[in-house]
């Protein structure tokens, strides 16, 4: 056994280096809180995943549906071959919308092809494909085009993992509007063996949604989800519409915030103060402490933290939509 300790000890040491993981786990001499006490009303399914539901009070989401088509038509750069310079020239010549270009000798066929591809009313998937191709991912049209989709089919999501890339996902939070209510559902893995079931639930959630909304989800949450599903041999082939609010916040709030962490934006722009919040960096440490002690009280602040992330996401979206409409 001593030999085994020597052989694996160096790895454990290196794995801990640079994190403050050690000291948290040993402090709990108090009674370990069981899962059902920490999350009363939560439901465990046979795979072990714990489902936690909540519906925080949030005003309904309202996206101007009528103005979307006009806003899309006004962006000449969406036509194949037209860049910023051509667009400016065309506007000077009185071509102010894509349909107006239909008779243009040079761009007529490209613009009518585009409109045909979009259809009437415009097909969201086709529209987002065009937007992703020709516009920066921070262009407000990505936000406004959400108006093409039923509000109830938008899925807000956020993952909590044990570290950066390559580490297990132990908590996934999704939120959607049902009527006037914002409903949050969190999937928690009480043991790492339940991760695969958690990921499969997420896969199903995504299949049912028309578009995803996240904060830094394009680089992180979505990548991790795909990587972890692939880890279990369950590749995710879909590439749904995905609006990452980080990209928009960066552009819209430049100069107004010192950095673009969600918590910074909450504080400086949205006026949300988190009390007793768990800093993101401590989330994996708390979960590890839970795994080692079985004390579910470590999980409560994580679950609250992830819930708040989702609520802030909605408030931020509303804020950014207002800015986009005003512009």
């Amino acid at each position: 056994m001593a030999k085994i300790d020597r052989s694996v000890g160096w790895l454990a040491e290196k794995a801990r280096a640079g994190s403050s993981a050690e000291h948290r786990t040993t402090t709990s001499s108090q009674q370990a809180v069981p899962l059902e006490d920490a999350f009363p009303g939560a439901v465990a399914d046979p795979s072990g995943v714990l489902t936690i539901d909540d519906h925080p009070p949030l005003s309904p989401l309202d996206i101007d549906r009528a103005a979307v088509t006009d806003a899309l038509h006004a962006e000449l750069r969406l036509v194949y071959g037209i860049g910023a310079r051509f667009a400016a020239g065309l506007r000077e010549d009185g071509y102010t919308s894509i349909p107006a270009l239909n008779d243009h000798p040079r761009w007529g066929s490209a613009s009518s092809n585009l409109l045909k591809r979009w259809g009437i009313p415009p097909d969201p998937t086709a529209v987002y494909r065009t937007l992703d191709r020709w516009l920066s991912s921070a262009d407000p049209l990505h936000l406004r085009a959400l108006g093409l989709l039923p509000i109830e089919s938008l899925l807000f999501f956020d993952l909590e993992t044990l570290g950066l890339g390559g580490s297990p996902v132990f908590l996934a939070a999704v939120g959607r509007f049902v009527g006037d209510e914002f409903r949050i559902r969190q999937y928690l893995a009480p043991a790492l063996g339940a991760e695969v079931a958690l990921l499969e639930r997420m896969k199903a959630e995504i299949r049912d949604a028309s578009a995803l909304l996240s904060y830094n989800g394009k680089s992180f949450d979505w990548t991790v989800l795909r990587e972890r599903l692939a880890y279990y041999g369950l590749p995710l082939h879909e590439t749904p519409i995905h609006v990452d609010l980080l990209h928009h916040a960066r552009r819209a709030l430049v100069g107004r915030v010192p950095d673009c962490h969600l918590s910074t934006i909450e504080e400086h722009v949205l006026g949300i103060g988190r009390s007793n919040d768990l800093p993101s960096a401590e989330v994996p440490i708390h979960y590890t402490a839970y795994l080692e002690t079985g004390d579910a009280s470590y999980l409560v602040p994580i679950v609250n933290h992830s819930k708040q992330d989702l609520i802030s996401l909605v408030i931020l979206l509303k804020y950014l939509l207002r800015m986009a409409a005003d512009a």
């Binding site: 085994i4 794995a15 580490s167 994996p284």
Partner: peptide, 27 residues
């Protein structure tokens, strides 16, 4: 088993899963 005891692997129905806080390929 030693790696599990050190909190680097977790034994799951699918097999051992890496659970270290830093990436295995980095350490």
């Amino acid at each position: 088993a030693g790696l599990c005891a050190q909190g680097l692997l977790a034994s799951t129905p699918r097999g051992y899963v890496y659970r270290g806080l830093r990436r295995a390929h980095e350490i």
